[in-house]
């Protein structure tokens, strides 16, 4: 079942890539088509997905099965959702506020249960990262369109 799913996902990606390559306009006279490499690569990928599906058919016949660790997968999907919200919230609230909120959350995810430790991370993580990257290295911090804690602190 897993091998089938892998083959099907790969086939879907390759069909999407073929369609994307097909959107590239034709080459002007004396030039090569800009879509030639993406098109060739996606056709090759489709061929490989076909091989995977053929292999999956043989595997199913032999009755192979795989145990899944659903608990871990759910936890990782949860962490990925946090990651997506975290990176998006840079645009809305700048760097400091999202980091202050996400730091204890991720620590909790990895098993830190000390309340003092989690509370310290709220202050320490944004502070240390801000000092290293935005003060020492001189990177311009992302500005929060809705509310920016750094601007508020700086008055």
């Amino acid at each position: 079942m897993r091998a089938y799913a892998e083959g099907l996902v790969l086939a879907a990606i390759s069909i999407f890539a073929i369609w994307g390559a097909w959107q590239v306009p034709a080459a002007s006279l004396g030039d090569t088509w800009a879509g030639i490499v993406p098109f060739s690569a996606s056709v090759a990928l489709l061929f490989l997905s076909g091989l995977m599906l053929a292999g999956a058919a043989r595997q199913t016949a032999s009755g192979a099965s795989h145990a899944q660790d659903n608990g871990a997968t759910l936890q990782i999907i949860g962490l990925f959702i946090i990651a997506v919200i975290y990176q998006q919230s840079f645009r809305w609230f700048g760097y400091l506020l999202p980091t202050a909120l996400v730091a204890p959350l991720v620590l909790y995810f990895f098993g830190v249960r000390s309340r003092i430790g989690l509370a310290v991370s709220v202050i320490l993580c944004p502070l240390v990262f801000h000092l290293i990257f935005f003060v020492l290295l001189g990177v311009y911090p992302p500005y929060g369109e809705v509310f920016d804690l750094l601007s508020w602190i700086q008055g």
């Binding site: 390559a21 800009a34 490499v37 993406p38 996606s42 090759a44 490989l48 997905s49 995977m52 292999g55």
Partner: peptide, 27 residues
């Protein structure tokens, strides 16, 4: 198969953007 598929996916991701020769948009 998975190794070659991984290599092809790396190639496809690198194709995103403007074509360096004709400046046509891809993906």
């Amino acid at each position: 198969i998975k190794g070659l598929a991984s290599a092809l996916m790396g190639i496809l991701i690198a194709m995103v953007g403007l074509d360096p020769i004709s400046s046509e948009e891809r993906y």
